[in-house]
Design a binder for these strands. Sequence first.
DNA 1: GCTGTGCATGGTT
DNA 2: GAACCATGCACAG
Length: 965
Amino acid sequence: MSSSSSSSKICFNPDCKEAKSDPSRKGWRLRVGDFAELCDRCGSAYEEVRFCETFHSDAAGWRNCESCGKKVHCGCIASVHAFILLDAGGIECMACARKPYIAASNQIWPPSLFPPPPLPDRLKDLSVKSRNQMTGPSSVPGQWWQATNLWNTAHSQSELRPRMPCDVDRPNNVDKLISSERPSPSAQEKKVKDSYERIPSTGLKLAALDSLLNGNVSADALTAFSTFRKEERKVDGLPDDIHITVDDPADTKKRVIAAEPGLTSSVAGMNFETHSSSCVNISLSSSKLKDEPSTPLFGLGVSLSSPNETNDPAKVSGTLSQRQTPPPPPAKQFFANSQNGGDSSGELQTHIRNGRPRGEGQRRTHLLPRYWPRITDQELQQISGDSNSVITPLFEKMLSASDAGRIGRLVLPKKCAEAYFPTISQPEGLPLKVQDARGKDWVFQFRFWPNNNSRMYVLEGVTPCIQSMQLQAGDTVTFSRIDPEGKLVMGFRKASNVPSEQALKTGNGFSTSGENNKNAKPSEAGSAFPLRPYKGGADSAIHSSINQINLTDPAYPWSKFDKTGYIQKEGTGAKSSLLPSKRKSSTLGSKSKRLRINNEDSMELKMTWEQTQELLRPPPNYVPTIVVIEGHEFEEYEEAPVLGKPTIFTTNPAGETNQWAQCEDCSKWRKLPLDALLPARWTCSGNLMDPKRSSCSAAQEITTEQLEDLLPPTGRSKRSKTKEETDAVEAAEGLDTLANLAILGEGEALPPSAQPTTKHPRHRPGCTCIVCIQPPSGKGPKHKQTCTCNVCLTVKRRFRTLMLRREKRQSEKEAERKKQQFQSTEKPEQEDELAGNKSNGSPSQKTAANGDDEDPNRWKSSCSPFKGRIDLNIQPEREEEPSPVSDSGGMMQLLRDATEQCLKQQRLGTPVGNGEPVINQVEPSSGTGGERPSVGPHNSGHPDADKDRPVSISMTVSASTSATG
DNA sequence: GCTGTGCATGGTT
DNA sequence: GAACCATGCACAG
């Protein structure tokens, strides 16, 4: 055996310039088969297992022996014999390894996580056996166990060469692997499966595996393993530094498998193609010969799956060397290999590796590709920090809205849960300690509930963690296991941080995107590298959503936005009960509170987008950032906007525009600067602009009649007659409703409870919210502002028609009102009495009044800005019937809200002005003063920009106002 | 009225 | 067509 180092007189250790001894001292085995020839000093250091300590103590890859704590270098070829990798992760120095085996070392899940599951006897036996074999006195360089050692070590040898995998799995995994038990494979999985079945040496493969299953290290198995390892390296262009010698492949008893570098494997008659061998990726682990599909060559280290195929918590931790050089993550590796390999074998390998990179990989094969961990080096580094911890990526999941929502339940992919999380037999599950990327421990409840004939696994209580990581829907959480602690680690990847292709290339030298696309369906690829469905982070997400959310839709009441900016679509309780559900319609029946309430028109928050925007106030002291989304400008605030006090804008004959706000206490109207943005509650004391009128005792600047006259026509409202009519008209408010109308047909009144869409049960046809407009799986066009489809055209046309009609009606009413005002000389008391008589004398009106307001007469008598005979004659209830001359929701809303305001004032005993009628201001629905999502069109909060549109103080709270007013 | 829980539904894969 | 899973929703507290 010629030694490559023998030709030199110098010690083979590059850090040593000494002349090698004579005879030279043999060190580690070289890849060419020789041994490194060292000088006395280096040779001595090597023999004393202090070579690494002596020559590269500063190098990376040092680990502590799990047994004695001794530092052991795991990162160079000189140290490959100095330690063994433990099943449960971590390493053990040879001194400890030679000690009697302690089965407990196989424990994967530390007590801190779960009770240590019992190791199957068979596995224990095998483990002990294999360990004993390994640690036998005959351990010398060249022992078969060192194959594992070396390979495992190779994982840590990133500075020397690409990490070598060591795929270990349980024998019964082999059963599953070979059997047809494999579940319906994905596209990739199918390839793998097909490839398995193409294995030419199936017989040998099976024999080898069978031998392994029987606990014997058969020649076949080892040969297959040997060959595979060799072939694998070749394919992957790796140094041929692992060789396994099988003296006689036919002799199952006499082979010597040597992981010694330089011992060339010679396997006669065994022509394993790499792809074929992939599935026979048998490695000799410290616990047992395991079969396992190949680990990515650049990938993860040893791991042992549980004897329980599906969800045995005894799954043994794999190891992944901490990467000194940016190694590709499994997924990258997967794709990288596919790219590099260029052939089916390479692709197969990568599939396998990605699918079953480790012990977990066997089960991972069953995972959808979208759950395959695509953890990047940075993420690994983020998780592992500076420690020597070994990270084993398990799976990842893109957070859904539900996951990221306030419910705090993270739905776990079933197979992932069963594969990587402990077995739970009770729905209550187990508390699961998970460490986040910052090292903070969280305890989640890992549980399930029955779902059909299956289970649905969830992690409960994740909200704090998710919020702490500032994750939202579209972001991805990754689950990894950190060894040797065996901790579960939850990393994350912000959707906005999806690494670019270039970045990925930079990170591992390979591009993932291409293969990602190649191997994953579009949706899967999208899942793997999701684009946040909302542009520009949380705030802009809200912006975008708001822009498209139809705020007439109660599915997005204000309360759906929590302080963190999440869209809380998971409406529960009363709010969520506001709408019928088509989904549940078949089962709800009379039980459906949601349906019943809706049908009774009891409460529904209906606001148009513009109306809502009127109420939005930028958060104080924040300068917005203007973003343009689909042609719309939005103000982005880092803080959520607040719901401000509605105001009205008037234009006097001179063309001067003023803003008016009503004091919460005295209900007097005060003139404000045009750009004044008021908080939800505003009183005269806040009238800083006009100190004379900064007190409720100060008189109103102008009479309410005058103010009324200054109002634009659309700024006036009327009362609805009945709730049904009200809703019918109010339903016509807004583009959303118009869209509904357009869909339903011209002239067809939208029922108060339009049929929800099947796509989004709480939304209705025409709903333009981000959910409803999003076609499934990214298919289909979206309706843009410039869309000219029939629906959009109809919507626009009807909107124009409605507005014209409204203005016309308003003009007519305006004339009538002025006429009536001119004739009005009666006192409020008389009006009240008359109004009561009138009302009493008109059953229909009485009914209407009672139905819509608890006491409309009071409104008429004391609150109406149109006093005297106005109330008696104009019969606003009638006018609000959806007739050609009636007004629609906005007007009605003004009156309704005015009613509420008046009643409020009456309850408080507050005189209404100085006997002057007032225009009552809308009171935002109760509890609306809190934070609001930071959303708003560019013109929101800028009155000037809205002068030409209706005074949107008509926040429509149809039935709630009626019910409570 | 709100929140949490458990389950059901139905769209997607 | 089956399984998965996102999310709706009833109900209890």
